[in-house]
Computed example of a mutant assay.
Amino acid sequence: MSITIGTRGSKLALAQTSTVCKKLEALGIEVKTVIINTLGDTSTQVPLHEIGGQGVFVRALDDAILAGTIDCAVHSMKDIPAYRPSGLFTSAILKRDSAADYLAHNGSISRVRIIGTSSTRRRAQLLRHDPDISIKDLRGNVDTRLRKLNAGDYDGIMLAEAGLTRLGLRVPGERFPAEKFVPSPNQGTIAVVSRADPSLMEVLSAIDHPQTRTDVMYERAVMEKLGGGCFTPLGIYCRSGHLIAEVLSLDGQQTERIEADLKTIDEARELGRQLHGRAKGLIDEAYRKLGISNER
């Protein structure tokens, strides 16, 4: 069987796709890759919430799958929106790498006063930790972000530790514990999305990691009940069924947090409903301040 895999063209996306290709080739499956540009790749000067949030990195690849141009696509699973087009299926979720955030910086951490990130979650969590630091918007691929750090535009920049690992980069800095700086839902996870073709889904399922799938599906169930996507500062992290979820105000000074051991997807949904009820004011406030409609 031959499979055509779509991918974004960044170094990180290609590294992740290479991991998937090697796993499939080890099973005797022939693969070829096609690079597809997404809106998220071409609009790097605009905050994500102004161009559509998570979906900007996946829509073009979704369209290519549905059009039959490619059979499947490789994504950082945190980029995949909660609500998906009909006819698509997440056929494989690889074993999770580190879910932690990483603060890259040069010199002493005590001298880090200006930090680059465009994530509302990371901004809020950093301000909760230290309200006196300054946060400046920063988008672009990992190389671009590191170049701006080394040029002195920022004292530190926020990255996903998993991305650095996949690129084979060793960068001075600090790993943030996921229990305190709760990551984005599904951070550190690679997913393969395909058309809902049983034979294709069966082949791809061979590289699926069941425990990771369970954990990230719990995270997504909570995310779906919370709403907000990448607009609201929210972190959701599950490890071996133990889930932590929090919603923050944009300035990080208010937090609603919930923690529980889960055994079913229904329990995850109920946890999400409970947190939404407690955090609705923070979610609505974030949408209002960002100038985004909160109709669901």
Results as ranks from 00 to 15, higher is better:
83 Y>M: 12
83 Y>P: 02
84 R>W: 00
84 R>K: 14
86 S>Q: 15
86 S>W: 05
86 S>F: 04
87 G>K: 06
88 L>M: 08
89 F>H: 15
94 L>H: 10
94 L>R: 03
94 L>Y: 04
94 L>M: 00
96 R>M: 09
96 R>F: 08
97 D>N: 15
98 S>R: 14
98 S>T: 11
98 S>P: 06
99 A>I: 02
99 A>D: 05
100 A>K: 00
100 A>H: 02
100 A>N: 13
101 D>M: 09
104 A>V: 09
105 H>E: 09
108 S>E: 10
110 S>D: 14
111 R>A: 13
112 V>W: 04
113 R>F: 07
113 R>N: 12
114 I>P: 04
115 I>A: 05
116 G>H: 07
117 T>M: 04
118 S>F: 08
119 S>M: 01
120 T>Y: 08
121 R>K: 10
121 R>C: 08
121 R>G: 02
121 R>F: 05
122 R>Q: 12
122 R>C: 15
123 R>S: 14
123 R>L: 06
124 A>D: 08
125 Q>T: 13
125 Q>C: 00
126 L>G: 00
128 R>I: 06
130 D>H: 00
130 D>V: 01
130 D>P: 01
131 P>G: 02
132 D>W: 00
134 S>Y: 13
137 D>I: 10
137 D>M: 14
138 L>K: 11
140 G>Y: 00
142 V>K: 04
142 V>S: 05
143 D>W: 00
147 R>M: 07
148 K>I: 08
148 K>D: 01
149 L>S: 08
149 L>N: 11
150 N>F: 12
150 N>P: 01
152 G>L: 03
153 D>N: 15
153 D>A: 06
153 D>F: 12
154 Y>T: 10
154 Y>S: 07
159 L>N: 03
160 A>G: 13
160 A>E: 00
161 E>A: 12
163 G>S: 14
166 R>I: 03
166 R>F: 05
167 L>T: 11
168 G>S: 10
168 G>P: 05
170 R>W: 07
171 V>M: 11
171 V>C: 02
172 P>E: 09
173 G>N: 02
174 E>L: 14
174 E>T: 15
175 R>I: 10
175 R>Q: 08
178 A>P: 05
178 A>H: 07
178 A>D: 06
178 A>E: 13
179 E>Y: 03
181 F>W: 11
181 F>Q: 09
182 V>M: 03
186 N>Y: 05
187 Q>V: 02
188 G>T: 07
189 T>R: 05
190 I>C: 07
194 S>Y: 03
195 R>K: 14
196 A>G: 01
196 A>M: 06
